[in-house]
Amino acid sequence: MAAVQTRSERALNRVAIAAVLVITLLFLAPIYWITSTAFKPRNLATTIPPTVIFEPEISPFVKLFTKRSQLRAAPEPEDYAAAPWWERLVFDGGEKVVRSGRGDVQLSGYPNRFMNSLIVAITSTVLAVSMGTFTAYGFSRFKMKGEADLLFFILSTRMLPPVVVAIPMFLMYRAVGLNDTHWGLIILYTAFNLSFSVWLMKGFIDEIPKEYEEAALVDGYTRLEAFFKIVLPEAATGIAATAVFCFITAWNEYAFALIMTNRRAQTAPPFIPSQVGSGLPDWTVIAAGTFLFLLPVAIFTFLLRNHLLRGMSFGAIRK
């Protein structure tokens, strides 16, 4: 960038900054909305115009994690007095926490669904990225017959809108008993992400000169050793970028999760909206669920941010 800017350049710069700010705000608005709703008292969640200033509370989160039922009448004062602070929050909302016969608090479906989401997304990401990396390495380093056709075929699995195959997949899964299982979703998401992962990783591995490995080979390493000692560290940036994309896809997937799972292996995306249906929707609880659902992707992306930034400009900064 020039050290000295002309007046018009400076003006242009300001316009650009303003545009970026507007776009950023536009993208952040829904996140703000969800976050604020997740901490609102229920009666302020749906006011028109929206309430911006309120005293944040965490009752939505307590409700999110517990199984509750409507109170027909106000709770007995001694029950209320004996209840821990978080249970009182539920009482205040006109509900009570459901307990088992032995008096244990019953958890809602959410923590379970959240765990399912984590299990499915992490496992399928690890599988898709590792298989994709190996496959991409093969495509990148070895000549094979019909290489271009094969690569195109791999990509072509992404050309059909996934929902088109949902019904046949559902029937197949039912036939082999993969319905409503973790592995069912993991296989699905891995297959789904694999083409993407292969293509992305091939781009990154192509950028690593083959001399890097050949040097290791003549230095006395086997190809596998060269792969782990040279290719993987050099491809770390690409692997991180690919992992983030795969994770986000698997984490956010809705349609298949809705069709293929209902209880045991259900993930958070189909579960959260299903809570809207029963009775009067409690938007604060839904917002709390959504807010927590946003966190893993945010954390994951944040942890890999340096790799991601380099990944985006990969190729541009190398000769």
Binding site: P209, E211, Y212, E214, A215, V218, D219, G220, I230, E234
Partner: peptide, 20 residues
């Protein structure tokens, strides 16, 4: 005999050092 067993050192034209 594979490259790794020939005990020969190679200084490449286009590559010199591992950046990492």
């Amino acid at each position: 005999i594979k490259a790794s067993h020939r005990d020969i050192a190679f200084v490449f034209q286009s590559f010199s050092l591992y950046p990492h």
